[in-house]
Simulated assay, not measured.
Amino acid sequence: MSGVLLELDRLSVRFLLGRDAEVRAVTDATLHLRPGRVLALVGESGCGKSVLASALLGLLPGNAQVRGKALLHNGTEQEIELLSAPEPVLAGQVRGRLVGLVPQSAATHLTPVRTARSQLVEAIRALDGPAGADELAERVGLDPADLDRYPHELSGGMAQRVAVALALAGDPRVVLADEPTTGLDRPLVHRTVDLLADTATADRAVLLITHDLAAARRVATDIAVMYASRIVEAGPAAEVLTDPWHPYTAGLLGALPDGGFRPIPGHPPDLTELARIEQEWGCVFCQRCPDVPGFAPCTGEPELLDLGGRWIAAHPPC
């Protein structure tokens, strides 16, 4: 597809737990990430967002079953199908070079007995990065002198900036930030997402995975809302966050301070129970949905409908 850096088509991930048990972690995820854009994938913790990120980089455990497509366009006529790419391609061409990862809890991903500088220099050399360590430090708003500190000497914000610098070391076209603001106070959250948004230049883009809807609202140009393994709504952030079409999106916004602190009743379902819930109810959100009179089940499989550039997962009666 023209003008798309990363294209997901019905990506699904299942974890086999035994002969008759499985975790439905991601179900039929369809997304388009375009240059110059920040696509925020939001939803409650445990809905499958981080599993989706791991699937794109080939970092899933051995009991995972993956289907669908995830096409990475590298700026030439070539494209890489990430889900079927062999490990040498992922390790040699994708990770760090085409897709840079900002992991959860950045400080825990830094080697404790080495300075930040030594780790960043190593990444630059391994990835043939075009920028030096000091240049990258300044780019992410970090004093180059701080690179000579060990991880335990860095504040949470400093460690997060080092993680972003490491993700940028190979000059990737896509930055995949997986819950990059976990554990940070609000001013640091703002600085971190602003820094990530600055990397979405004319030929580069950011996939921001977060449960922090306020952070997503601050920087996202596009948004996709995930619930119990499924993307239930997607579209331009300005439209989705001001005029939500799916009741789950509306519920997330209602739980924010400016939405009145009105949490969604109930709890997300266990991902091991999704097959049973979908069979009995048709929709995994029905049991929490305010739009279902008397909590009557939906019928049929949910369908992701394209409505003029916005997408919504809908059942005929909902």
Rank of each mutant, 00 (worst) to 15 (best):
L71N: 02
L71C: 05
L72Q: 01
L72H: 00
N74P: 00
N74C: 08
N74E: 13
G75F: 04
T76H: 07
E77H: 06
Q78E: 14
Q78A: 15
E79M: 12
I80V: 14
I80E: 02
E81C: 05
L82Y: 03
S84H: 11
S84Y: 09
P88K: 14
V89G: 01
L90I: 11
L90V: 04
A91I: 10
A91R: 15
G92H: 08
G92Q: 09
Q93W: 07
Q93Y: 02
V94T: 04
V94G: 02
V94Y: 08
R95N: 10
G96E: 13
G96P: 05
R97H: 09
R97A: 14
L98Q: 15
L98V: 03
L98P: 00
V99A: 00
V99R: 05
V99F: 02
V102T: 09
V102D: 10
V102C: 03
P103H: 02
S105Q: 13
A107I: 13
H109L: 12
L110C: 05
L110I: 08
V113P: 03
V113S: 15
R114M: 15
R114E: 14
T115W: 01
R117G: 08
S118I: 05
Q119G: 07
Q119E: 13
L120W: 09
L120N: 11
E122C: 02
E122G: 05
A123Q: 15
I124M: 07
A126W: 06
D128V: 02
D128Y: 03
D128G: 15
G129W: 14
P130H: 13
A131P: 00
G132M: 11
G132N: 09
G132K: 13
A133E: 15
E135H: 14
E135K: 09
E135R: 15
L136G: 01
R139G: 00
G141Q: 06
L142I: 07
L142V: 05
D143W: 14
D143I: 08
P144F: 12
A145N: 13
A145W: 10
D146C: 13
L147R: 04
L147I: 09
D148M: 07
D148L: 12
D148T: 09
R149C: 11
R149Y: 04
P151A: 13
H152W: 13
E153L: 10
L154W: 06
G157C: 00
G157L: 12
G157D: 02
M158W: 10
M158D: 08
M158T: 07
A159F: 12
R161G: 12
R161E: 11
V162G: 08
V162N: 06
A163Y: 06
V164S: 06
V164E: 04
A165M: 10
A165C: 11
L166I: 11
A167G: 10
L168I: 12
A169K: 05
G170N: 09
G170E: 13
P172Q: 08
R173I: 15
V174S: 00
L176I: 10
A177K: 03
A177Y: 03
A177G: 13
D178E: 06
D178M: 01
D178S: 01
D178L: 04
E179V: 02
E179G: 04
T181N: 02
T181S: 08
T181K: 08
T181C: 06
T181R: 03
T182F: 06
G183K: 09
G183V: 07
G183R: 10
G183L: 07
G183P: 00
L184Y: 09
L184M: 05
D185H: 14
R186S: 01
P187R: 11
P187T: 04
L188G: 01
V189K: 03
V193K: 01
